[in-house]
Amino acid sequence: MSTALLTARPTTAARPAAPALPAWAPRVPALAALALLPWLAVLAACHETAWVALDLAELTALLGLDALLRRRSPAAFGAACLVALLLAGDALADIGTAAPGLPLLAALVMAGCVELPLAALCLALGRRAGAGQRRRPARRPTAMTSTRARVSSSAPWPSASPTGCWAPSPSSG
């Protein structure tokens, strides 16, 4: 038997481009937030405090994502992840707490047709917004320059002498 050493090879192929989203897709988070308002009123009338709190968090996250998408901010990806997490958690909680029969079927339909597709769309929108921005390299501190040649020393930074001129640090012996 022979043994082979498996190593990861760097790939030179570019990552495939994400599929194009329709022109109306960036408006979906705001429309979903608007659609939550009547449902929040129903939940509040039934005194379902926990569900009201979860749906208010979803509403706030959707409106925040909408604002970041309008500004084309790279932070939209983080907001999209938050929205997707809240929507997936809502779907899981709905399914887990539904009574058998029609309530469970309704929870499954809502999860499969509304909440999880909306989460996937928000992630795609956030990824597209984040991919459009190039990250700037971190700024390096600027070194002080002088007309005289710098004397090399063992210290990484020169120290100031009493005269105010830059001088090398005394090297330890």
Rank of each mutant, 00 (worst) to 15 (best):
17 A>P: 07
54 L>R: 09
47 H>P: 01
38 P>S: 05
28 V>N: 00
21 L>T: 12
23 A>V: 13
50 A>K: 15
43 L>S: 06
21 L>G: 03
30 A>V: 04
21 L>A: 10
31 L>P: 00
38 P>Y: 05
54 L>F: 01
41 A>R: 14
19 P>T: 03
41 A>Q: 14
42 V>R: 15
29 P>C: 02
45 A>C: 14
39 W>M: 06
29 P>E: 03
28 V>T: 10
46 C>D: 15
51 W>F: 08
35 A>D: 11
32 A>V: 02
26 P>Y: 02
33 A>T: 06
49 T>L: 13
55 D>H: 15
31 L>V: 05
19 P>R: 13
25 A>M: 03
36 L>F: 03
52 V>G: 03
29 P>S: 07
35 A>H: 02
32 A>E: 02
20 A>E: 08
22 P>F: 09
44 A>T: 09
23 A>L: 11
29 P>L: 02
31 L>K: 07
45 A>D: 09
50 A>D: 10
20 A>I: 02
34 L>W: 05
18 A>Y: 01
20 A>N: 08
47 H>M: 13
48 E>K: 12
39 W>V: 10
45 A>G: 12
44 A>N: 05
25 A>V: 00
41 A>G: 12
23 A>P: 04
26 P>I: 05
46 C>V: 13
49 T>M: 15
19 P>W: 12
36 L>E: 00
31 L>G: 04
52 V>D: 07
55 D>L: 14
45 A>P: 01
54 L>V: 08
43 L>T: 01
24 W>Y: 13
32 A>Q: 04
34 L>I: 06
51 W>A: 11
54 L>C: 12
54 L>M: 13
27 R>Y: 06
34 L>N: 07
29 P>T: 04
54 L>G: 06
40 L>Q: 04
29 P>V: 01
21 L>R: 06
43 L>H: 03
25 A>Q: 01
35 A>K: 11
51 W>H: 10
21 L>P: 05
38 P>N: 11
17 A>Q: 14
46 C>I: 05
37 L>N: 05
45 A>Y: 08
52 V>T: 07
54 L>S: 08
50 A>L: 13
53 A>K: 11
26 P>M: 02
31 L>Q: 09
37 L>A: 13
34 L>Q: 09
18 A>E: 07
20 A>S: 15
30 A>C: 06
19 P>E: 13
54 L>E: 09
37 L>E: 11
28 V>H: 02
24 W>P: 02
30 A>S: 11
34 L>H: 11
17 A>S: 15
49 T>F: 12
34 L>G: 03
25 A>I: 00
51 W>V: 01
53 A>R: 14
33 A>F: 01
24 W>V: 07
35 A>C: 12
55 D>P: 08
31 L>H: 06
26 P>K: 04
25 A>S: 12
45 A>K: 15
40 L>T: 00
51 W>Y: 09
24 W>N: 03
52 V>A: 05
32 A>W: 01
32 A>I: 05
28 V>L: 10
49 T>C: 12
46 C>F: 10
55 D>C: 14
32 A>P: 00
49 T>Y: 11
35 A>G: 14
43 L>R: 06
22 P>L: 12
22 P>Y: 08
36 L>Q: 04
19 P>L: 15
19 P>K: 09
44 A>H: 01
42 V>F: 06
31 L>Y: 01
44 A>R: 02
35 A>V: 05
27 R>P: 00
52 V>I: 14
45 A>H: 14
25 A>K: 00
24 W>Q: 08
42 V>I: 10
34 L>D: 07
27 R>H: 13
45 A>L: 15
